[in-house]
Design a protein around this nucleic acid. Sequence first.
DNA 1: ATTTGTGCAAATCGTTTGCATCTGA
DNA 2: TCAGATGCAAACGATTTGCACAAAT
Lengths: 150, 150
Amino acid sequence: MHGSEQDKGESTGTTHLDLAAMLRGADLRPTRQRMALADLLFRHGDRHVSAEALHEEARAAGAGVSLATIYNTLHQFTDAGLLRAIAVDTTKTYFDTNTGDHHHFYIESSNEVVDMPEDCIRVDNLPSAPEGFEISRVDVIVRLRVKPSV
Amino acid sequence: MHGSEQDKGESTGTTHLDLAAMLRGADLRPTRQRMALADLLFRHGDRHVSAEALHEEARAAGAGVSLATIYNTLHQFTDAGLLRAIAVDTTKTYFDTNTGDHHHFYIESSNEVVDMPEDCIRVDNLPSAPEGFEISRVDVIVRLRVKPSV
DNA sequence: ATTTGTGCAAATCGTTTGCATCTGA
DNA sequence: TCAGATGCAAACGATTTGCACAAAT
């Protein structure tokens, strides 16, 4: 072996993150499918994908990854802190590549999730958690509907 | 038929809300099962139930209501504005009998939803909705985990 | 050589639906 | 009467799981 930079077929060029290292850091072997998915997820900035959508994307990108593996990977990434799962729609789980502190817009008409910069919302007066509990996270979802045309 | 007050078997006594009227107001016939469910839902203050849980409760209360009817009713009540659906857990839908402006605690270890009084949280700096959209609702969920004992 | 990951297809689980039967006004 | 409700069971869609095979260290 030598370096650890190899292209997966069609890198979009600009790459700074070392996906293999990222995976290793999470105790996950950098397999072809995990690399392909990491590439789709983290190469293009903040994304919000459902398993099904990612599956389709992977297929389109020519990376053969089964749906089962998509689910496995999505959960492994989530457990490793590389992704965050968001509950907006009861029917589907969305995964957010932005694990930082921020909140979301949810466009009800199209089932789209959009990030909101952190400083956009200030949550005040947070009540202290009930005895015996501590806050693990605060999720704010601003649901949007299409504004009726005037 | 005569009046519209009849007991469903075991009323807990204190009843001020006219469930039949409530249903009529929602254009829903006050059938035996809808009355029974409304009773379970609205008689005991703010509640957060899943379809399955309500089904079990109905069975325990001796009211024969099929699961299909539970779902139908839950959605009809929600459409009528008597209930509000909350997305906290991707796997199940919870229905909240409190339709007023307020937010929730979500206890991750037990999958419980608890109301938070309205004035508990102040959401500031709400970004204006993207062009063409308007805010339909803002949901705040404070996720709790069990505090590790010292 | 081992251990870990992958893919398929079957299994789950919550929820929805079609349709025959019943019920309230 | 008769539109509207209910219940059952089959249908569904998202996710999970068991297990044989393939790939990574």
